[in-house]
Computed example of a mutant assay.
Amino acid sequence: MIRIQVPATTANLGPGFDSCGLALSLYLTLDVGEPAEEWRIAHDLGGGIPTDASNVIIETALSIAPNLEPHHLKMLCDIPAARGLGSSSAAVVAGIELANILANLELTPERKVEIAAEIEGHPDNVAPAVLGNFVVGAKLDGEDFYVRHLFPDCALLAFIPKEVLLTSESRGVLPDQLPYKEAVKASSIANVMIAALLQNDLKLAGDMMERDLWHEKYRAKLVPHLKPLRELTKANGAYAACLSGAGPTILIFAPKSEGENLIQVMRNFDQTAKVLSLNVEGNGSTIFS
């Protein structure tokens, strides 16, 4: 049996909008079973996720290799859907890996990122899902540009509310354009944030994460817990709290010594939410056999 494992991802990190992404230690796992007369994918995610060839994983695989022989598949996924943790990107990357294995395509990591970014529209989630760790990327005129780098060591905490928030809804509140001076300021904030991360300066990076001008102030009305949670975690030693992707999950960056206390603080803040302590996933998508 072959097993495909794809990590969750968080995108943006505040001002790195549609560009910065980080792989996290939650996973979509796909077991590839025996050949069959038709595609079947078993899972326990509920009736909203197809179990036949209309599943995103299988659709993606067939878009790359249309003549694939059907197989029975089994999916386990601890990446919550519609929470800003890259569940759809993980499914796309799993489909690419499935096609690569079954059709013996010998795709390079670079080609996997290229295919995934074409499907998703930008590389912020899919590049770290393939490559692991921290990736800064851009899709320009159909060409992909990106840099992978090690993320600074810290506590990574995810505050995952019970409510879902579809990316389409979260994107719908964004403006069509920004005034030139504001865009320059937003860009400079992102530049300093990335430079600080490359220097392992999470204090400065965290300050920049919370000054985003690209998207968070528009999405804040859809995520009312962002502002009070940011103030609460900052008062308890966090470097920063920012939207994970389009939300509603909030990702908190903190010194490792503050991790346990912050977990309890967030659980007290909202007992209906799930609070997870995560790690940076350094390997990206992985194949086991």
Rank of each mutant, 00 (worst) to 15 (best):
P109H: 11
A205Q: 05
A91T: 00
L73W: 03
A65R: 00
E38G: 02
S257K: 08
A205Y: 06
D52C: 03
R230Y: 01
L178H: 08
E120N: 06
G284F: 03
P123T: 13
A205V: 13
G121R: 08
H71F: 04
P123A: 15
A23R: 09
I252D: 09
A240V: 09
N55K: 04
S244W: 00
N279C: 05
K185Q: 15
R171Q: 02
C242E: 01
Q5G: 02
N100G: 13
E34G: 01
G47W: 04
L156T: 02
V275T: 10
S89H: 00
K234S: 14
Y218K: 07
S88G: 00
L251N: 06
V164A: 09
T167Q: 08
Y239G: 06
L68P: 02
A158Y: 11
R83D: 05
A82M: 12
M209H: 10
F269I: 11
V126H: 09
A190V: 02
D153M: 05
K203E: 13
N283S: 15
A240Q: 04
T51L: 01
L62I: 00
I194M: 11
M75Y: 02
N283E: 15
F145L: 14
A23V: 14
A246F: 14
M1V: 06
N279S: 15
I250P: 08
V173L: 07
D44M: 00
I4F: 02
A240L: 07
E97L: 12
M1A: 09
S63C: 08
V136Q: 01
I57F: 01
L165I: 07
G259C: 11
Y180R: 10
A103Q: 04
G206F: 06
A158K: 03
L198H: 01
A240H: 05
K74F: 10
P179A: 10
S63A: 08
L24E: 14
D78A: 14
